[in-house]
């Protein structure tokens, strides 16, 4: 038997049927899901992606900002991840983050601020994960071929594939089940908000500033990346999918409620229109998405309880 066939035969014997049955894409999504919830991607094992991106909050969290493993305060509010596979650029104000694969390194290795704190410890990740035979099997199923090296490039690809599976398209709005007041709100929203919050995910993916630039502000938005004066304070329009459960709002979490967030747009809406828009925004909550077991903390891997 040629070595490659011997290798494949050995793989077939050692990989559990649950892993073998998956196609490569499904295997990557399964691997990415497990990695998303694995705190071994952080310096001291205390934080996973899911520490900040909580499913019941549309994969945002309930805090203004979230401190990292060193307790350094976060700088920006945790964004939700519904339909994030459709987004580019990603995050609040960084046009360099064009793909989920690239962006995965920011929380893991970033230092401004420190989030998961793995800067300088990259070699620790394959060591930690490689100690688990099931992880090795999952990587082999997700990335079949000669290259069985476990590295961050594969990790980021698997995380990205899982994140691309986070599709939210079953809110009352999607099912055309708006109450009369939500319908009024939808009309008001289209008139007053949809120039930026447009499209199926209610974002134009562009960077805007809603108040005069303040060079003394601690967060200069897009300017921090481009260095262009015109970009001071410019922030990418956030998606509004599941917005009712992703508060607090604004890039720094400084708007505690939807009322605050709507009010900051300076639209001078009549109170009944603001209320109707809020009712409409609540119709963007996709309960199936928030409770989909395929997106939650995995309870098994390789057919074994975790």
């Amino acid at each position: 038997m040629k070595p490659i066939f011997a290798f494949l035969a050995l793989m077939a014997l050692t990989i559990p049927p649950q892993v073998l049955a998956q196609n490569r894409h499904d295997a990557r999504v399964a691997l990415g899901r497990r990695l998303f919830y694995d705190a071994d991607l952080s310096r001291d094992g205390s934080m996973s992606c899911a520490t900040c991106h909580e499913q019941r909050h549309g994969f945002s969290d309930g805090n203004l900002v979230h401190p990292g493993v060193t307790d350094e305060p976060g700088r920006r509010n945790v964004p939700g991840l519904a339909n994030v596979g459709r987004f580019s650029p990603l995050t609040w104000a960084d046009p360099r983050q064009t793909t989920l694969e690239k962006q995965a390194a920011v929380p893991v290795f970033g230092t401004h601020p420190v989030e998961m704190g793995m800067a300088g410890m990259q070699e620790q990740i394959p060591k930690r994960l490689g100690r688990d035979p099931c992880y090795r099997q999952m990587f082999a199923a997700a990335f079949p071929g000669h290259d069985q090296k476990l590295d961050f490039a594969k990790i980021s690809r698997a995380l990205a594939d899982f994140e691309r599976s986070l599709i939210s398209r079953d809110a009352p709005f999607d099912r055309h089940r708006l109450s009369p007041e939500a319908t009024v709100g939808w009309a008001a929203f289209r008139r007053s908000c949809a120039s930026c919050h447009k499209g199926p995910d209610f974002t134009d993916m562009a960077f805007h500033r809603l108040s005069p630039p303040d060079p003394a502000a601690p967060d200069q938005g897009l300017y921090e990346v481009t260095g262009r004066q015109a970009d001071r304070g410019r922030i990418r329009t956030p998606s509004l999918r599941n917005v009712a459960v992703t508060g607090p709002y604004w890039h720094d979490g400084s708007a505690p409620t939807l009322d605050d967030a709507i009010g900051r747009h300076g639209l001078n809406l009549a109170p009944d229109k603001t209320r109707a828009i809020k009712v409409f925004l609540n119709a963007l909550t996709d309960d199936k998405f928030l409770n989909n077991q395929a997106f939650s903390l995995p309870q098994t891997a390789c057919g074994v309880k975790l």
Binding site: S42, G45, A50, R128, L297, Q299, L306
Partner: peptide, 20 residues
């Protein structure tokens, strides 16, 4: 060390193998 702890209910945020 987290891998040695047998929780009654699996924590919602279980911690990595290097955590406690």
């Amino acid at each position: 060390a987290t891998p040695k702890v047998k929780y009654e209910v699996r924590p919602e945020k279980p911690g990595g193998t290097v955590s406690y």
